[in-house]
């Protein structure tokens, strides 16, 4: 399998206190990785390092190319935790926001082919109906769907998402994760997703990465369920929740982890 993200000995600190230490992993083509960990554990920082938005120590290669030399950015779709316009009213339509996801081009004109791609992805993400509305005037959930459309409009091979479902209602979340699952299964898109909602997204995820300042766990979800390190980190309450859900007849991660369901 082709390596999509290879990280070796990543280290990062905003001040003198390290945020991340000695993080190494290899995500291969077709993986759907759930990145979990406590608040302040360094998950978002890790994503920023992988995208070159922060500079730390260690080696990162994207699609086999060192990050410093990586140019094929259209292969990557990124959806950040926060909507970019929280206060100022940037007068830009949802359609124009999605257009920003296409590879950069000189000039102010919009090509017909570009519009076609934008409308297609907006239909896919159910945002076509408000294509002409000002992005700022949309609800936070609608904005998040538009930003997902922007992240996938360039038909990326790797999607990096930072808690994308936080602002979504139940039905939007379902649509969101179904779409991600479809992209992963049918189109082979590799996905790295920060989530606290392991239950909802668990059925699609193939691997878990647990980061708490360092890499605690990286492996399949079956291995995750049985990992002593993870159980130690998650603590008694979380373990109890997992046990409770198991006792009610289903694994919270949607896997066949071998637990005996009562």
């Amino acid at each position: 399998m082709q390596s999509v993200i290879r990280a070796e000995n990543l280290r990062f600190a905003y001040t003198r206190t390290p945020v991340l230490e000695d993080v190494s992993f290899n995500i291969t083509s077709g993986d759907y990785v759930g990145l979990i960990g406590p608040n302040g554990g360094g998950k978002t920082t890790l994503l920023k390092l992988l995208l070159g938005l922060e500079k730390g120590a260690g080696k990162i290669a994207l699609f086999g190319t060192p990050l410093a030399k990586f140019k094929d950015w259209q292969k990557i779709g990124y959806l950040a935790q926060k909507s970019p316009v929280s206060q100022s009213r940037f007068p830009i339509s949802a359609e124009e926001v999605v257009l920003m996801g296409l590879p950069p081009r000189r000039g102010a004109d919009v090509l017909r082919a570009e519009l076609k791609e934008v409308h297609e992805v907006m239909r896919q993400t159910r945002t076509r109906e408000y294509a002409g509305r000002i992005f700022h005037d949309l609800s936070v959930g609608q904005q998040q769907r538009v930003l997902l459309a922007r992240a996938i409009v360039s038909k990326p091979e790797l999607l990096i998402l930072d808690e994308p479902s936080t602002a979504l209602d139940a039905s939007s979340r379902e649509m969101f994760f179904d779409l991600l699952g479809e992209l992963n299964e049918k189109c082979g898109v590799t996905i790295l997703l920060i989530t606290h909602d392991t239950g909802e997204v668990g059925k699609y995820i193939s691997k878990f990465m647990y980061v708490d300042k360092t890499l605690v766990f990286f492996g399949t979800k079956e291995e995750f369920c049985k990992s002593d390190k993870v159980a130690q980190k998650l603590g008694a309450f979380a373990q109890h929740t997992i046990d409770h859900l198991h006792n009610h007849g289903h694994c919270p991660l949607g896997c066949s982890c071998g637990e005996k369901h009562k």
């Binding site: 990124y78 950040a80 970019p84 316009v85 920003m100 590879p103």
Partner: peptide
């Protein structure tokens, strides 16, 4: 500059981190 770099400028002003992940 405005016409030639219109997309880069709007993209950086709207969402700089995302623009950087597009290679801008």
């Amino acid at each position: 500059g405005l016409v030639y770099f219109y997309r880069d400028l709007t993209s950086v002003c709207f969402d700089e981190p995302f623009a950087r992940t597009r290679g801008v």
